[in-house]
């Protein structure tokens, strides 16, 4: 059965017809061609498909597209203007927080939510905060450093804008 849904994706309004069973991750990747959101496990363990749904990190492989009707969705493609970096993207680049890049979008989307809730996390808090996102390449040391750098950068930005 088809359902019409309207939602905002990376600031743009989208209306589409979707099947009841269409998973949000497939809607994003295949209907919207936003292929930065990846599929790694199908069982909501790896976090490669993490997006922001109304500002909260969500695993889009375990969410029906039809339920996102009316939601505001942000994917990796929508967190910084073309050619610029969000502080978390910059952190991952500066601290070598990525190797193959496959987990990276999900890891970054999760980190945004993490820093929203806890703008100044310790190493321990970062490790627990990204525990739903698997990386097979980096050993996590540099991902932790990347998020720490971003936290400091975002704190500074906040101070200068206040």
């Amino acid at each position: 059965m088809k359902h019409e849904i309207t939602l905002t994706i990376n600031g743009q309004s989208v209306t589409a017809e979707v099947d009841s069973r269409l998973l949000l991750v497939h809607f994003i990747r295949e209907n919207l061609d936003l292929t930065g959101t990846h599929i790694g496990c199908d069982t909501s363990n790896c976090g490669a498909c993490t997006i922001l749904l109304n500002g909260k990190s969500v695993k889009s492989c375990t969410y029906l597209a039809v339920r996102a009707d009316g939601a505001e969705i942000t994917t990796i493609e929508g967190i910084a203007a073309e050619g610029t970096n969000h502080p978390i993207q910059q952190g991952f680049h500066d601290q070598h927080g990525l190797h193959c890049g496959f987990c990276t979008p999900g890891m970054i989307m999760r980190s945004i939510d993490l820093l929203n809730n806890n703008p100044n996390p310790t190493e321990e808090e970062i490790r627990w905060g990204i525990s739903g996102n698997l990386c097979r390449c980096t050993g996590y040391n540099n991902i932790v450093k990347s998020i720490r750098q971003a936290a400091e950068e975002m704190q500074k930005e906040k101070e200068t804008t206040v």
Binding site: S44, T50, K56, S57, V58, K59, T62, R110, S131, G132
Partner: peptide, 8 residues
């Protein structure tokens, strides 16, 4: 679970 699962 993990923070993203707990969000939902």
């Amino acid at each position: 679970a993990d923070p993203s699962v707990r969000n939902v």
